[in-house]
């Protein structure tokens, strides 16, 4: 679990103006579960190293690591990954890591995903894992995804047609013309209208910036969702 593997970038693909997908070939990497993350270690020519954690965007194939990175404007590592890294580049990978904020194909019951910004990445991995489950009785998924504008959405086409998943995009700054919901932050109304009702007994996964997760988790609890069924993952300052 703790060994560093050498990974090689094999593919990059733009997602938004500030984000892209990186796919790495990582011999020795295996067994990832949706929701888990990896540590990436980058080494400068003088030996200086920086390590950051990134959620896996997709699981299921061993020896492949797919992440989706959103640029932190004054960041040290994310600007490199979004703008500079290219196929053939080497970096080290440790993982998969994390055993709590995960969804496994055997997990029963409906699942409510709530994403703020790039917090959608581990939740997309869960939805993608769900889509590969062919047995009847796999729980339905719903995704509430808050983004600034449509142009900031990750994987909008795919998540609109993923098997077993119903996705609702909530726009905080600017909504497309076709959207009836005025732009704004996540509200109690959104939770009560678009998420599973509390009595559906859904497991709830919330991921995003700290402020978003605090708000979303509190709204879910206020709306009657069982605290014990809400799992959160936060990033950024509080």
């Amino acid at each position: 679990m703790t060994a560093w593997h050498t990974g090689q970038v094999v593919h990059t693909e733009p997602l938004t103006a500030s984000a892209r997908v990186l796919t790495l070939a990582v011999p020795g990497f295996s067994g990832a579960v949706a929701g888990q993350h990896v540590d990436l270690r980058l080494t400068a020519p003088d030996g200086y190293q920086a390590v950051r954690s990134y959620s896996l965007a997709r699981v299921g194939a061993d020896e492949v690591v797919e992440i989706a990175v959103d640029e932190v404007p004054d960041g040290e590592v994310s600007p490199y990954l979004v703008h500079e890294a290219r196929p053939g580049d080497l970096m080290e990978v440790r993982g998969p890591l994390g055993g709590y904020f995960v969804w496994r194909p055997g997990d029963a019951g409906p699942v409510q995903l709530v994403a703020g910004g790039s917090g959608i990445v581990p939740l997309a991995a869960m939805a993608r894992a769900r889509a590969t489950v062919t047995t009847h009785g796999a729980g339905l998924f719903r995704l509430l995804a808050s983004v600034r504008t449509h142009a900031d959405a990750f994987f909008p086409d795919e998540l609109g047609q993923t098997e077993g998943l119903t996705t609702t995009w909530l726009y905080s700054r600017q909504a497309p013309a076709a959207s009836s919901r005025p732009p704004g932050r996540l509200t109690r109304y959104d939770v009560e209208t678009y998420a599973f009702a509390p009595d559906a007994g859904a497991h709830v996964y919330v991921c995003g910036p700290t402020g978003f997760v605090e708000t979303a988790a509190a709204l879910l609890v206020d709306a009657g969702h069982d605290v014990a069924r809400i799992r959160t993952e936060r990033f950024g300052g509080g």
């Binding site: 980058l42 080494t43 030996g47 300052g237 509080g238």
Partner: peptide, 30 residues
């Protein structure tokens, strides 16, 4: 370790060492 082409990194401004594998932040992540 392998060298990551094109990665320069940003050296910490602090004179005081941080534990291995850590970076300094002014935020207080949660």
């Amino acid at each position: 370790a392998v060298v990551t082409r094109g990665f320069g990194g940003r050296r910490p401004a602090s004179e005081r060492p941080v534990p291995p594998g850590q970076y300094l932040t002014d935020d207080f992540p949660v």
